[in-house]
């Protein structure tokens, strides 16, 4: 069997693909985080908790109203975005003129409250949530002949759901990027943070725009939560496991850079996947090593515009 750096090629290719899948979650989460930081200057520590709430809303919708995965994929982010807008309007806005540290502390506390509440009612073991029937099953992937010159070799079973995760996350990331960078609304959002007075002079409701932006960022977190529900266990601490990594990815991509967050999300997922083959013990630190290197070489991040 053909090997690559001492590892069988099918195994290596499989790991690359898995890295890309994990990267999809990182991309959607870091995109929301970067959006909130870039446009609102809030370090949103509640992001992981809201990702968890997204997964739980999907679970509760199914459990109590019988609403399945596909409607939940739209409904849960909308519900959580609504919650986010309430948080912005009544909790974050009063802190708007204060030091950023206050927003950070508030959202951190909020994350603890949300996690504690769900832990009280649902324990920590997690809730079952099944993969929708339409995406059940898996594809047998082969290593293509042109790569090895041999007959196709079995590479891995790619679950249909995981393939969907990559597609869904690419669609959402692209759509969000277009919304922010290429539409009138996106231009207004960006303008409202750069020169709020001027934008207000044109008759635009700036506070409403800010609330909307926060809602959008939080909705993305909830979307990632619903995507994650069928494959990771839906439990109250699922967000705190992932949020630190996502923060590192936003820093690597360049604080506030929308495109940077997306690209480095996928990139870091792949780097992490490769580490799991060659030195699995280091897989939970590799992202932070990359972060340290990036901060030394390019302090503004890979795609940052400079401080």
């Amino acid at each position: 069997m053909i090997e690559f750096l001492g590892v069988p090629l099918p195994l290596f290719m499989g790991q690359l693909l898995i890295g890309l899948i994990n990267g999809s979650f990182y991309a959607v989460l870091s995109l929301g985080l970067a959006l909130i930081f870039g446009l609102l200057n809030i370090v949103n520590f509640a992001h992981g908790a809201l990702y968890m709430v997204g997964a739980f809303v999907a679970y509760l919708l199914l459990q109590f109203i019988g609403i399945g995965y596909w409607p939940a994929l739209i409904l849960a982010p909308v519900i959580v975005a609504g919650l986010g807008m309430l948080i912005e309007r009544f909790l974050l806005r009063p802190l708007h003129d204060l030091d950023h540290l206050y927003g950070l502390l508030l959202t951190f506390g909020l994350a603890l409250v949300l996690e504690g509440t769900f832990r009280h009612f649902y324990g920590v073991s997690g809730m079952p949530y099944s993969i929708p029937d339409s995406l059940a099953g898996a594809q047998r992937l082969m290593v293509p002949t042109w790569l090895t010159g041999e007959d196709p070799v079995f590479m891995m079973a790619l679950p249909n759901y995981r393939a969907w995760v990559i597609v869904a996350s690419l669609i959402v990331c692209t759509a969000t990027w277009i919304l922010i960078e290429r539409t009138k609304l996106g231009a207004l959002m960006r303008a409202a943070t750069e020169k709020p007075d001027l934008v207000r002079a044109f008759g635009v409701n700036v506070p409403a725009l800010i609330t909307l932006t926060y809602g959008l960022g939080v909705g993305l977190a909830a979307f990632a939560g619903v995507l994650a529900a069928p494959i990771y266990s839906v439990n109250p601490i699922m967000g705190s496991n992932i949020i630190i990594v996502v923060f590192a990815i936003v820093v690597i991509g360049g604080l506030g850079s929308i495109g940077g967050a997306i690209v480095s999300g996928f990139l870091l997922g792949v780097i992490e996947g490769i580490t799991k083959v060659f030195y699995p013990e280091a897989s939970n630190v590799v992202i932070f090593v990359v972060m340290a290197i990036v901060l030394i070489v390019r302090p503004a991040g890979l795609f940052g515009k400079g401080a």
């Binding site: 499989g14 994990n22 990771y232 996947g273 699995p280 013990e281 939970n284």
Partner: peptide
């Protein structure tokens, strides 16, 4: 055997190694 960090979310990489 493969040693996975504690409180890991995604085991698919380790599972594929076990499969291989």
């Amino acid at each position: 055997s493969v040693r996975a960090p504690l409180s890991n979310q995604d085991f698919s990489s380790f599972l594929l190694q076990a499969q291989a």
